[in-house]
Amino acid sequence: MIIPILTSLYYSFTSYSVLGSPTWIGLDNYQLLSQDPSFVDALIVTLIYTLGAVPLQTFLSLVIAEAVVRRFRNAFGRVVRSVLFVPVVSSLVVAAVVWRAILGTDQGLVNSFLGMLGLPGLNVLGNPNLALAAIILVTVWKNIGYFLVIYYAGILAVPAELYEASSVDGASRIQQLFKITIPSLRPITLLVVILGTIWSFQVFDLVYVMTGGGPGGATATIVVRLYQAGFENFQMGYASAMAMILFVIVVAIAIVQRKVLSDD
């Protein structure tokens, strides 16, 4: 891990097209990044994507885990956990292909259903206002099972005596959720949020397969721009500078989240 990071750091200070030897140019790549509107747009798209996906998948994972533990610790609950975990073990590229087929304008499942109802079709992935929202929802669908299992194990570890004592005092299930469950799961929530944030900033496969970063750059995240710069335009030094900016952002966010969410 350390060697590729240091290598990328070195390349970020060079002009490197892969076909020749890297040439040292100092901070030029970083200066170009600060003036590149496409990179700024990609950063904004990534932030919107993260702010949409992370809270939603964290909240839904916790709520479903709570419901399964408290109400459905039976065969139905096991089926729910298994069904929601299937997307986790499936290939991200395969999932993206399937969802592209479902949301596609040409005989997509959604538009076929709308056609049966006599309604006009939706160009979800071709609409700048809908494409990113669709990718966020697919991300939540893909990740929710993983975080559900983590929350499920965490809720089972909360002492049952706390719930019994609160029930004697007349606490409702909602009060137990906010007064006992959520505070007890603080370290797990920290883990879930940090993992979700890191994964969101690194998203590539899903976006690249479903939209390619379009329409009009509406779904082009930092890693998509990084890929385009490095492997389509052969600007490896410029792409490495993007990678280092991304690295610093992710580390900074992880530190801030730990400070905010931890008990220390």
Rank of each mutant, 00 (worst) to 15 (best):
V140N: 02
D106W: 08
V209E: 00
V89G: 00
A243T: 12
R71H: 11
S262D: 15
I150L: 15
V86I: 04
A133G: 00
M1F: 15
L156Q: 12
F178C: 05
I182M: 10
A96I: 02
T221A: 07
M244L: 15
F147M: 03
A75C: 04
V192A: 04
Y152V: 08
Y151M: 06
Q35F: 13
V203Q: 10
A153W: 09
M1R: 13
N123W: 00
R186P: 00
A95D: 00
G212W: 02
R70N: 12
I222M: 14
D264Y: 15
D264V: 13
L114M: 09
Q57T: 10
V54I: 09
F201R: 07
F178W: 14
I180G: 04
V250R: 08
A75V: 10
F72E: 05
T219C: 05
S12M: 14
A96V: 00
W99E: 03
A131T: 02
I3L: 15
V224E: 02
Y49N: 04
N123C: 04
L60S: 05
A220P: 00
I174S: 12
A220Q: 14
P120N: 07
Q107W: 11
Y10N: 13
Y30R: 11
F247W: 15
F178L: 13
G196S: 04
Q257R: 06
E164C: 07
L6D: 11
A133T: 05
V138R: 01
V98D: 01
G26H: 13
I25T: 15
D41K: 14
T58E: 07
